[in-house]
Amino acid sequence: MSSTPALVVEGLTKHFGGRTAFSEASFTVEPGEVFGFLGPNGAGKTSTVRTLGTLIAPTAGSAVVAGLPLTPANGVGIRRRISVMPESPGLYLRLTVAENLEFFAGLHELPGARDRIERALRAVNLSDRAGDPCRALSKGLRQRVGLARALLNDPTVLFLDEPTSGLDPVAAREVHDLIADLRGRGVTIFLTTHRLAEAERLCDRVAIMNTTLRTIGRPDELRERLFRKSLEVRTRAPLADPDRVFGALDGVESWQLDGSGAYVLAVSDPDSAAPAAVRALVAADADVLSLSQSQHSLEDVYLRLIESDPEVSAA
């Protein structure tokens, strides 16, 4: 696997007239990485994909896509090395699945098109539907055909724009499995999504975008960056003197009672603080119902960032 980054984006900006689609986006995506691109509606996710996919021209900034600088002269070269699956798969509904793929194999001028089509259909478990007109397929199956089409040219970078948008949970799960399979095969994937659980499950790193890039990192890194580690303690009855129980514990920086009646302890190391907390609670004759480490999801990270965003607050 090449060590050259799959994507290098520096200060990329796109304006449509007086409206800013996205501004000053800078990030790098390593080969084989699944990179999540999250943000609310209108955050500039799709415009970023379209810019990196050479469909629209950036207003400012630079990028290297699949090893080629993003310039008009390199448009064809970049498009040979990438695949883009838009939010709507955009299939020719009167054509069969195989005919759709044959058309795109022709546009890429791929040698051994028939074998590639069969391989792509096998990869998305659609070999038995090759002869079906696309209009006869469910939305989930159409999405899978779109993925098969995106795989035809063995792209260096695969852009997936909201691949599970509008799909039911079962169909979405199938698409997740396919993406996980592609990751296993070392395909670099740039995934834009609204579904935070999807990003958390599939992505090595995520960027949160709201016209400008708000943060970037591994989901666990972002959680650590934004949320203090904590333990949550539930007791049958309120403690008589919680300050005496928790205040003297090593590793407990502070404590508070949350709205549900649980004690939330801010700790530096949950693994060492938890046994000490249990011992202190037993010593205080408390009936402990549960003690757990607080889990913050990527959704918590996202919501904290987006809700604290001045642009969202202003809106």
Partner: peptide, 14 residues
């Protein structure tokens, strides 16, 4: 209108 233009234009076609 049928959403097929965008996928086509992301291929190497001029």
């Amino acid at each position: 209108d049928q959403g097929t233009l965008e996928p086509v234009l992301t291929t190497p076609i001029r």
